[in-house]
Design a protein around this nucleic acid. Structure first.
Lengths: 139, 139
DNA sequence: CCGGATCCGTTTCGATACTG
DNA sequence: CAGTATCGAAACGGATCCGG
């Protein structure tokens, strides 16, 4: 059995948020959808440090149920399914950014492209705004 | 067997960070140690939305191994063990703050005290600085 | 082909009871 | 008080199969 939608009894925002993203894979799937701009099942399968297809399918289903992503057929290629982030998912960008900053500061084995790291350090909000704009214009 | 220290093959800062805090409990334990200022095993046991004692013990051990908390005997009461956050753990405050902001924005069932929420919205950095200062002065 | 679903062994979780 | 021991339940993950 794969992961189910949980029901936590707490009203703490952190605890409730972790019901959605408090596992090993969900935030990585969102990272690939949002930051690496992957949109197809196969792209996500190849990108996520080796996620299993059943786990990916499960997470995509949960993310759709939580209204974090939308799912639709590719108009150009009827077989393909396109996954796209909603505003709710894009609003997790600050969380991802802070995780990256933390990793780059404290984990010597964590790496990021130099221009990427510089932008994060010097212009966090601009970086987030640019990334959001890309998705909102559907580029 | 409980959770082990993982070894992910990726060098992505998000993926690597999730090896430490990418589960349901670790970040909640840190929340209680850092934001609620709980320091004893029993305090943490009572506070964390009902964490089981074996899971708490396991997470405290992993957090110590990751140099996120320190463990020492209470000088006043020899049985008690005091857990305290390191700089590395305090540097997760921005991540926690952004999770809270996300929850308050998108989860209607997430709540926070009014003055707390206002401070988060209007003076995020000041709030983080104040919280860090409390721990650094050992108050 | 593409996006999954199913099967099934392994790992981790978590409630309760217990111990130094 | 600060943890272990136990054991059933849940989640993971690899392999394989299936429907459009």
């Amino acid at each position: 059995m794969t992961k189910k939608l949980p029901s936590r009894r707490s009203d703490c925002p952190i605890a409730r948020a972790l019901d959605f993203v408090g596992d090993k894979w969900t935030l990585l799937v969102l990272r690939d959808i949002i930051m690496a701009r992957r949109r197809y099942f196969q792209e996500l399968l190849a990108g996520n440090e080796g996620i299993a297809s059943n786990i990916l399918a499960n997470r995509l289903k949960l993310l759709e149920a939580a209204r974090m992503i939308t799912r639709r057929r590719d108009p150009a290629q009827a077989r393909r399914v396109i996954y796209e982030p909603t505003e709710k998912a894009l609003d997790l960008l600050p969380v991802m950014i802070e995780l990256i900053r933390w990793g780059l500061k404290h984990d010597p084995n964590a790496t990021a492209p130099a221009h990427f790291a510089r932008r994060l350090a010097e212009d966090r909000d601009g970086f987030i705004a640019d990334m959001r704009a890309l998705h909102q214009r559907g580029i």
